[in-house]
Structure formats: structure tokens, C-alpha cells
Simulated assay, not measured.
Amino acid sequence: MLNETNLEKRLIDIEQAITDIQTKINEQPLSNNWLEKITGSISDESAFLEALEYGEKWRKSEKLTDEIDEGK
């Protein structure tokens, strides 16, 4: 059973933990770069992976078109 002293000690510990968490949150640098803000936010989404595939195919097709235009 908790007595008043133990309860007070636990409350102080909780308050300190909350203060520590708030400090860590406030110490994180805020970026103005939109890309840094969203990097990694949807990496597990199937639509994102599908978009990556389309991008890769498009880049490869552009590379082939450039090589054909250059006469290679």
C-alpha cells in the first residue's frame, strides 16, 4: 500500500519524466525543408512502392531515349 511519502515521490518522478520528454521534443530541430518533414512518412505504403517502380521505369525509358537521340 502506498503511503503519502511514496505517492509524493512517484508524482515527482512522473513530473520529471514529463519535463524530460517535453525538453526532448523542444530540442528537435524544426526544418523548413518540406522534403525533410515527409521523408520516411509513407515508405511502407504499397502506393508509395508502386510510385517508386513507375519512377524507375520512367527514368530508364528517358535514359534509353537520350541514348537513341545521341546516336549510341
Rank of each mutant, 00 (worst) to 15 (best):
K63E: 15
W34R: 09
R59H: 08
G40C: 02
T39Q: 07
K57P: 01
S61F: 04
T39K: 12
R59M: 12
K60C: 01
E56C: 03
E56K: 12
G40D: 00
Y54Q: 09
K63M: 09
G55H: 06
F48L: 02
I42P: 00
G55A: 05
K57Q: 13
Y54D: 04
E36H: 06
I42C: 04
L35D: 03
K37L: 14
E62W: 08
G40R: 00
E36L: 12
E56G: 02
I38S: 01
L64Q: 14
I38A: 02
I42H: 09
T39E: 09
L35H: 07
A47I: 04
K57H: 08
L49H: 09
L64R: 15
S43G: 04
W58M: 10
E36D: 15
W58K: 12
A47P: 00
W58F: 14
E67D: 15
D69P: 00
S41P: 00
D69Y: 11
K60R: 12
G40T: 00
E50T: 11
I38E: 01
D69I: 12
D44G: 10
T65K: 15
I38T: 03
G40I: 01
T39S: 11
E56M: 08
E50S: 12
E56W: 05
S61K: 13
K60Q: 13
I68Q: 07
I38K: 02
E45N: 11
S41K: 10
L64C: 03
K57C: 01
G55W: 03
D66R: 15
E45R: 10
D44W: 00
K37Y: 02
A47K: 05
E45W: 06
K60I: 06
R59P: 01
E56S: 12
L49G: 09
T65H: 12
A51C: 02
L49C: 00
S41R: 09
W34G: 04
E50A: 11
F48M: 03
I42S: 05
S41N: 06
W58Q: 12
R59N: 12
K37N: 13
D44T: 06
D44Y: 02
G55I: 07
A51H: 02
E62I: 12
E53D: 13
S61L: 10
E45A: 07
E62F: 08
L64T: 14
L52R: 10
L35Q: 11
W34F: 12
W34V: 14
A51W: 06
I68K: 13
A51I: 06
T65A: 15
S46L: 04
A51E: 05
K60N: 14
E56H: 08
W58D: 09
D66K: 15
I38D: 00
D66E: 15
G40A: 01
S41Q: 08
A47H: 04
K63N: 12
G55Q: 08
G55F: 04
